[in-house]
Design a protein around this nucleic acid. Structure first.
Lengths: 307, 307
DNA sequence: TTGGATGATACTGATTCCGTATCGCGTATG
DNA sequence: CATACGCGATACGGAATCAGTATCATCCAA
């Protein structure tokens, strides 16, 4: 064989010989006998095609090439250890990157709290937010572009798992001069005849359909409905006095002048879930840690108290 | 055994498995069978303490830690090859660093030519000049701070070798209004009664003593001698009309207004050598290359032609 | 339900590595 | 000048590791 492969053992032995300036002394520190050192260094020199050491009667001297390769070898061993340490930390979830899919309106609620709590526990983990709608999150999960997604609800998928993280009550957002503005609490039946501004227009099995099912269960058929693209638009229209809209606890955090939020009667069960979705059987320590944080924040109210 | 040592083989096998996303396909490209790959990757995972791959029925997936370690492993292999290539180049003298000791006055002569020729042949070699007198060069050679030194002459040393690179004729530098200024050529006997400005005062077995031996051989005893520190001072004094001095071919390159240079008669053998000194049995390819360049420039006149 | 593919395992043969003993060489020492 | 000592290189036998063959368990797909 002309040249065998270079292994870390060659580097370790060579480094010891250079540092001790002697094969025998290096053998002592390495807890091996001297002949293996001679052989390994010979193999290394043969593989490199360069003499690294000059053998003298009193020990060894390092050639110019040997000095250069000594520095490189030390560097390589150091990098190897760093790589191992780094991989271990990643494996333990201490460092790394977590890609999270979020849905436009949901980012106002519990998600900032969850991410804040997670980042304080794992400060060296980079959290990357991807703004994706429900189907986009599912696609991104399957393509491993994200590790976890958040949306209002998910259909069952064979390769994915979802769970409810938080249940939020619905509130009615209306103009402060609206006839109902004086009330402390509202019933669904109170708003059946109002101009309802609902959102988002797409994707289609979505938030609007959930609301409509809610009215259906109460035997109410709202007949004046305006669909808009997103919650911001809906709230803006409410502020202009056009009609009323429905927002979640967390949606109340979007404060707009002239708008007040009134809760819906508890018995109406006007609630909406925040769900988390991820791949089945995923053994990602970062995901486990993130899910633990998210579940522990379930009971915390998402609505910030207003003065 | 808790954890064996990581070797480059582990990295090579792991990289192949990651890139082919399969143990079997990786085995084909590596020209080994599949079981060794399984074992080596298992050893690697055990040594690192982290699972790098997720084994599925269709192949393997790479964990987060695996992805990180894959990049690091590729980097390590690349660096290893670069280190080997670098050591080879250094061993062949294609790149590297050559430390040269030079003596003050000698740098005006052949040394710049030698270094210029060497740098054009070995453009990737860094040439570092150290300004050291003769004894300083010998000390630096023994301490491996320089690889080669230049001076006017060297005494024999047990562990060092010296050789003559160039022999320069001496010229007389005198003021253009000096009585001898009209001559075309001078003899040593012409200047025996002049005020001789000689240099350097130190170190003591040096240039001045060589000159004095030269006069002795001709039976001349110069009786008006002024010793100064260096050639620059000597030439400056000549320019002021104080006396005359002796300079080498290369010393004539130091042009000072009001000064002319006249050659000494060839039969006076008024010459001075430029010598190169280096360690015995040095197997440094850069030194070999440098010496070859220096020897080939022996015949080239060091004095630049004046108008 | 079955056929094909995947990775894991058991066992055996081959390779490599290491340790002991010894050699040749150069230096230091008397 | 002769001897003794220390150094690295070499030869050889035993131990450890590695690779190859055959086989198994599992999962997906037809």
């Amino acid at each position: 064989m002309s040249s065998g492969s270079i292994e870390f053992r060659h580097l370790r032995y060579f480094i010891a010989v250079v540092e001790r300036q002697s094969f025998r002394r290096a053998a002592l520190t390495l807890h091996v006998s001297q002949p293996p050192l001679t052989r390994q260094v010979q193999q290394l020199e043969e593989a490199l095609g360069v003499k690294l050491l000059t053998r003298t009667s009193t020990g060894v001297e390092t050639t110019a090439a040997g000095k250069v390769y000594y520095e490189e070898a030390r560097h390589l061993l150091m990098l190897s250890e760093q790589a191992a340490a780094r991989a271990l930390l990643v494996g333990q979830g201490q460092i790394g990157r977590l890609d999270v899919g979020v849905n436009g309106s949901a980012v106002l609620g519990a998600i900032p709290q969850i991410i804040r709590a997670f980042r304080s526990l794992y400060p060296n983990v980079e959290v990357v937010l991807h703004s994706l709608d429900r189907s986009g999150q599912i696609k991104a999960l399957r393509e491993h572009r994200i590790t976890v997604g958040f949306s209002r609800f998910f259909a069952d998928e064979k390769d994915l798992t979802w769970e409810v993280i938080q249940t939020e009550r619905m509130h009615v957002a209306l103009h402060h001069q609206h006839p109902l503005a004086g009330r402390k609490i509202l019933r669904l039946s109170d708003i059946g005849d109002q101009l309802l501004i609902l959102y988002p227009r797409n994707p289609r099995p979505g938030f609007i359909d959930m609301m409509m099912r809610l009215f259906d269960r109460q035997g109410i058929s709202p007949y004046r409905i305006q669909e808009v693209d997103d919650m911001i638009t809906a709230v803006a229209l409410v502020a202009s006095g056009l009609g009323i809209t429905l927002v979640t606890d967390s949606g109340c955090n979007l404060q707009v002048p002239g708008i007040i939020h009134l809760p819906l009667r508890k018995s109406d069960n006007a609630t909406v879930d925040l769900c988390m979705i991820y791949r089945n059987n995923e053994e990602a320590p970062l995901l486990e840690a993130f899910m633990t944080v998210a579940r522990n924040l379930k009971g915390v109210p998402a609505r910030s108290e207003s003065a």
